[in-house]
Amino acid sequence: MARKITYQQAINEALDQEMARDPRVIIMGEDNAGGAGAPGEEDAWGGVLGVTKGLFHKYPGRVLDTPISESGYVGAAVGAACNGLRPVAELMFVDFIGVCFDQIYNQAAKFRYMFGGKAETPVVIRAMYGAGFRAAAQHSQCLYNMFTHIPGLKVVVPSNPYDAKGLLIQAIRDNDPVIFLEHKVLYTMEGEVPEESYTVPFGEANVAREGDDVTIVAFGRMVNQALTAAAALQKQGIHCEVIDPRTTSPLDEDTILESVEKTGRLVIVDESTPRCSMASDIAGIVAQKAFGALKAPIEQVTAPHVPVPFSDALEDLYVPSPARIEAAVTRVKEYR
């Protein structure tokens, strides 16, 4: 039975159901419960924004609060995955990757290949990302492209509650290291989510809207910005196809290429900064594999090549807006 819950509740439910199903699943992070050693309430926070609330009491000994030692506990999650557990380590803000990246990209990501195919490292690293909270340069970045660059990591960017639940369950069951990225602005987004457990497979894009005129490929929160733009463009008689790859690694190239073969026009919407981004990656793939189908230059709607600013006046300009997406779509549509 499906009912409406938020993106945040969907993530909590996925963790809950997987912890119930599989005793090897543990979660850890700073204040995933909160209140450790303190005189007041236990499970006081349930994560800095309450995403893991309630699991501490339900699964005794399997929700671990950590000191502020990301290199230590993220690495410990990787090691525990090598030794039979299925840890979900939370990094809070993805920006904190800087203090623990080695354990992820030199360790977890490389084991299987370096060890000649012998290792399995079923670890999930959850982190929130993205601009929109006036949280400034060190708490707002959109770094999925950085992880996507690294062979051995799988990278997940759900854009809605349904996908968040199904993709997280898939991530926990997956036998490779998975970076699971939650857009902080989406936590309050509501959507239909089945109560029962289900998975959404990796590497299968969702066609969020069908159309013949222009293909829009968008990631995470940008899928919703693209859908808003597409609805407005529809009124002007421009029919957009909106593709949500859902995972940046593996990437469902086929769905993107098929759509471009149909429309001949492509706009990519990516909240990351533009250099070495998902936008430039997909533009490269399409230019190489669907060159003959293109009727217009590919447009990339991204953040500018600057850190995320604090002031709302600047942050609102930083994030790709439906208006900018509409303008880009109009440009590629009118191009002859």
């Binding site: 700073e30 303190a38 926070w45 609060d65």
Partner: peptide, 12 residues
């Protein structure tokens, strides 16, 4: 005494 909601009695 605290880092967010975690006591230093736990983390130190």
């Amino acid at each position: 005494g605290y880092a967010e909601a975690t006591s230093s009695k736990y983390s130190v």
